[in-house]
Design a protein around this nucleic acid. Structure first.
Lengths: 192, 192
DNA sequence: CGTGTGACGATGCAGCTGCATCGCCACACG
DNA sequence: CGTGTGGCGATGCAGCTGCATCGTCACACG
């Protein structure tokens, strides 16, 4: 066996370049050449590690998903001893694009979310994460004991965060306004 | 002058075909040929009425915007004598993809909304409608007199509707669940 | 009854796309 | 010290893209 290369690291490196392309030019501008250029490698290398473009997209989505979930888990551990209200707040705010890292993730999530509307396959890719998120939020809302229908409230809140993220990225409102609006709303829902 | 053709009608006809392409295949699958085929005309005709692809996209967006605003105005007139709560409810529910017409509009709105995240120009196209919507909602919320910060609440609620629409289109939740979640949430926010 | 002009179809073209196919080169193994 | 195999670059190709450029046909006007 010749050169040793960590396959996962190589693929992840390409995936990160893909994320940057999505955030900067959009999902439909993603091509083997653009990603390769962004990653500073040849187009052949990209093809070597991903047999098809779809495989590359899928892997890139998995990378952001894992990355995001890791961040959420970390954040969750931090406020483990907080109230349910603090838990749901921390979790959902963590999904808003309030710093560069979250901006990147939000861009990728928004791009795939939009494509999911016309691609049942991508919709399936996204569904699991969505369900987990809603279940977690519903659980915490139930624990807070202030809302009548935790499931419905979870659907509404996650949708709101997604919408706020989209509005921020499209510069329909500032990150600060989005965060403030969300906080204000959470006060209303959970009482003070 | 030869043949008489209503320019606006021809362009609107092409725009409607464009909407169908967006709803069925996505914004990035939009090409002169696809739109022409969907409209049942030649590619040359499309080029005849729109000098560039951008011009076509922009016009198509204006068409949905007008169409949607007309529907909102109609709906607004219907419940003119209702409570502010009914007004804001009717207005925002009207934006959820609960029938075929609104599904089409929501698909187009979602597609352009996502692209706005990477295209400042499209973001500008969208901004006006967004501002109007938020101002209207904030006004009605103020009239309802149950919320502390109507502006923040308007930002949150419009984002929520956008998010719910996206989730419905991506089949992350059913239209019924989305409507129920929104209603439930509105109860919480506006009290009972 | 020309005839010019607007509405449209057909064709061509450069550029990009995803992908298959080569060939080279370095290194771990026998 | 071969040598084969994994990592990688280069090239080619068919298909699609937006768009420019033609040709053609019908009709309202003088």
């Amino acid at each position: 066996m010749p050169k040793k290369v960590d396959p996962h690291e190589r693929r992840a490196q390409i995936a990160r370049a893909l994320h940057r392309v999505i955030a900067g030019r959009g999902l439909d501008e993603v091509s083997l050449r653009h990603v390769a250029t962004e990653a500073g490698v040849s187009a052949g290398l990209v093809q070597h590690w991903f047999r098809t473009k779809d495989e590359m997209l899928r892997f890139a989505l998995e990378v952001v998903a894992e990355q995001g979930q890791a961040r959420l888990a970390r954040r969750g551990a931090e406020i483990e001893h907080g109230t349910p209200r603090e838990a749901v707040r921390a979790l959902l705010v963590e999904l808003l694009p309030l710093d560069e890292e979250r901006r990147l993730e939000a861009h990728v999530a928004l791009a795939f979310g939009a494509r999911a509307a016309v691609s049942p396959e991508i919709a399936r890719w996204v569904r699991d994460g969505m369900d987990q998120m809603r279940a977690f939020v519903a659980d915490r809302l139930r624990a807070a004991g202030r809302v009548g229908d935790p499931e419905a409230a979870a659907v509404a809140l996650t949708a709101m965060v997604d919408g706020l993220a989209a509005h921020v990225l499209a510069e329909q409102c500032t990150p600060e306004a989005a965060e403030a609006a969300f906080d204000d709303h959470l006060d209303t829902v959970l009482g003070l």
